[in-house]
Structure formats: structure tokens, C-alpha cells
């Protein structure tokens, strides 16, 4: 197994004194696709925000590459820029598709990137929409723009928070195909939050189950679905867990 990109040790997150997440230990390895599954309110999105350094943990340490972060120790900008998130809602800027896709590059001072934008738009089958205002797009198109905007940055880690929820099969297929390509061709590490166990099975190398803020099981995808160690995982896989 490759080196861990992230190592989480005794990480907790509290909101208003209420503990919503407690991860005793979790390694996320270079180049893997890790799916985080679990019912709503299990802490999946909270964990993702901490992996993107958008929120600090209440306690514990997050080791990212060779640097450690924790409460009161925010990640510096160069490290933050190695990670990005695609959220469930596309959250596009009120600009053209082209301007949205190039946005992250401009933040980094790369203004001469037209060829890269064009190639990314073609890859996401958005080239005919490049001049269109982003807020006039359909849900699927908007989410493809959000993914294009993240992919063009060639992130070392891409975090996906329910990126295909409520999308039609065409857009789901297109997004999954491009996410897999990013992982396969560029070696990006992916963490995918999903409610869809079938998607987790299709996409992930490993799957982690979160329940009530705690990691129940982290396992290779086949083992997770075929021979889970924890009875709660087995119940979740069988669809017996109501949420």
C-alpha cells in the first residue's frame, strides 16, 4: 500500500458543545478512492470539510503530506491549494461557464490557460455551453461545470460531497467516468461521500462506514460489501439501516 496522504489521529469535532465526529484513526492513501458512506447526520460532510481545511478539528491531529494541523494551526495556502471539494450543490459563480472553470486558475495567477479550459470543457462535454451564464444551466450541467472547475486545478486530493445526488443517469455516468480518469491518469486521491452504496461499490477502492460520528468499519470494497467485519456494516449493506 502507498503512503498515506492523510493520517487522522484522535480527531474530534464539536458544535456548540455537541460532539458530531470522533475519528480515532484513519489513513487515506495516495491515489486511492475512499468512499464515505453512512446515514444523514453521521458526520461525513463534517469530515470532508476538515480534510479540505475549511474547518479545524476541535481536538486531535490531521497529518497531510508532511505537515500536521490541528486546533489553532490552520493549513497554509500552498497546502490548502492541493485539495479541493465538489459539493452536492454546484455553487457556481454568477458568471459564464468559461469564467467559472478558469476561476481557480486565476486565483493562482494563471491567466493564460485558454487551451486548458477548452480541453477541460470538451472532456466534460460542456464546450457548447462555454459562453452561457452558469445559473441558466440544468442541474447536471451545473454539476459538470463544478467538477470541471475542480479538475482543471489538477488537485492532489479531490473531495466529492454527494456529487451526483439527484442527477440523471447520463450525468452520473459522465461525472463518474471523469472522476475515475482523474484518479487513474493523474493519481489524484479521491474521497467520495455518497448515500448510494452502488456508486460506492462502482467507484471506490476502500469504503468507510460512519455512524453517529464514529467510524464503524474501513475496508477494501469487496470485503466491505461481501464479508463485513461489523454487524452494523452488514446491516447497512443489506439496506436494513433506516435513515
Amino acid at each position: 500500500m502507498s503512503e498515506p496522504v492523510y493520517r487522522l489521529q484522535e480527531v474530534t469535532k464539536d458544535y456548540d458543545g455537541r460532539r458530531v465526529l470522533q475519528v480515532d484513526h484513519l489513513d487515506i492513501f495516495q491515489g486511492e478512492i475512499l468512499a464515505l458512506v453512512g446515514p444523514s447526520g453521521a458526520g461525513k460532510s463534517t469530515l470532508l470539510r476538515m480534510l479540505n481545511f475549511l474547518e479545524p478539528p476541535t481536538s486531535g491531529q490531521i497529518r497531510f503530506l508532511d505537515s500536521e494541523f490541528g486546533p489553532g494551526r490552520p493549513a497554509p495556502l500552498p497546502l490548502r491549494r492541493k485539495v479541493t471539494t465538489v459539493f452536492q450543490r454546484p455553487m457556481l459563480l454568477n458568471r459564464s461557464v468559461w469564467a467559472n472553470v478558469i476561476y481557480g486558475l486565476r486565483l493562482r495567477g494563471h491567466s493564460n490557460s485558454a487551451h486548458l479550459v477548452q480541453a477541460t470543457l470538451e472532456q466534460m462535454r460542456l464546450e457548447d455551453l462555454s459562453r452561457q451564464r452558469a445559473r441558466t444551466l440544468s442541474g447536471g450541467e451545473a454539476q459538470r461545470v463544478a467538477l470541471a472547475r475542480a479538475m482543471i486545478l489538477r488537485p492532489e486530493v479531490l473531495l466529492l460531497d454527494e456529487p451526483t445526488a439527484n442527477l440523471d443517469p447520463y450525468n452520473v455516468g459522465l461525472i463518474e467516468e471523469n472522476v475515475k480518469r482523474l484518479n487513474r491518469e493523474l493519481g489524484a486521491t479521491l474521497v467520495l461521500v455518497t448515500h448510494n452504496v452502488f456508486q460506492a461499490r462502482r467507484m471506490a477502492h476502500r469504503v468507510a462506514l460512519l455512524l453517529e460520528g464514529r467510524l464503524v468499519e474501513v475496508n477494501q470494497v469487496d470485503a466491505f460489501f461481501q464479508s463485513p467485519r461489523d454487524p452494523r456494516t452488514a446491516a447497512f449493506v443489506r439496506g436494513e439501516m433506516v435513515y
Binding site: L54, L77, T84, M91, L93, L107, R108, L153
Partner: peptide, 26 residues
């Protein structure tokens, strides 16, 4: 401006000033 958009801007690597300018633009 949607707080989630501000989070997305930060996630894309914006500095605090870049974030503020983008929010003002929105």
C-alpha cells in the same frame, strides 16, 4: 451571498482577500 458559496470559493484556493472580492462581485 450563500455561505456555502463562500466555502466553495475557499475550497478552490482563494485567499481571504480573493474570497472577499469574489463575494463582493457576487
Amino acid at each position: 451571498v450563500d455561505p456555502q458559496l463562500r466555502r466553495q470559493i475557499e475550497s478552490l484556493g482563494a485567499t481571504r482577500v480573493q474570497n472577499a472580492l469574489t463575494v463582493l462581485s457576487e
